[in-house]
């Protein structure tokens, strides 16, 4: 089972990210769960969403405490929250940032693999909006192929309708442009 935690701010679409990924996995015949950190929704406040993907029915109905992957939609959260809390040793922290992965490693002291992408820039260029949820999904799939990237296209088209193309372009760009920094590889 792969467990993924999304960090964003209310209105940035962290919950939508988790949902789209689950829908893509289910469309591949896998089992998946997506759910928000339950509570009142407030625009701009830190938000957490969760996604589980497995080849077998999922019976675990708790929050995710030891994720395989953490996705950070908003770079300002890196200073506020320990986004890597509980991240598995062989997990990946995937973050939206204008800094390089080396600089992020230094700032956060995270030992796990890092995937970085300037998602805000891509979202602004492709959609004219700093909403990074679909962009970060591209980055996430670059870091780990939880589902085939093409499986996201159906859910993206269904969710975004007329503006789906822009989201798909941002998603594909992030999938191409993400940089991965793996500590084990660095040591070699």
């Amino acid at each position: 089972m792969i467990e993924i935690r999304f960090h964003g701010r209310g209105g940035q679409g962290a919950v939508t990210s988790a949902e789209l990924l689950a829908l893509a996995a289910i469309s591949e015949g896998k089992y998946a769960q997506a759910f928000p950190s339950f509570g009142p929704e407030r625009r701009g406040a830190p938000v957490i969403a969760f996604c589980r993907v497995d080849d077998h029915p999922i019976r675990l109905r708790t929050n995710i405490y030891s994720p395989d992957l953490v996705v950070v939609l908003d770079p300002s959260l890196l200073r506020l929250i320990n986004v890597a809390a509980g991240l598995k040793e062989n997990g990946v922290l995937i973050t939206n940032t204008k800094y390089t992965s080396g600089e992020i490693r230094e700032k956060l002291g995270v030992k796990q693999a890092l995937a970085t992408i300037n998602a805000t820039k891509i979202a602004l260029e492709e959609m004219g909006l700093p909403i990074t949820n679909t962009t970060m999904l591209g980055s996430l799939l670059n870091a780990r192929q939880v589902v085939h990237p093409d499986s996201l296209i159906g859910p993206l088209e269904k969710r975004f309708g007329r503006i789906a193309d822009k989201n798909i372009r941002a998603f594909r760009r992030a999938y191409e442009e993400t940089t991965i920094l793996n500590l084990r590889r660095e040591k070699q």
Partner: peptide, 10 residues
């Protein structure tokens, strides 16, 4: 509530 109502699943 929430644990089931707000979850996307197959």
């Amino acid at each position: 509530g929430f644990i089931l109502t707000h979850v996307i699943e197959p």
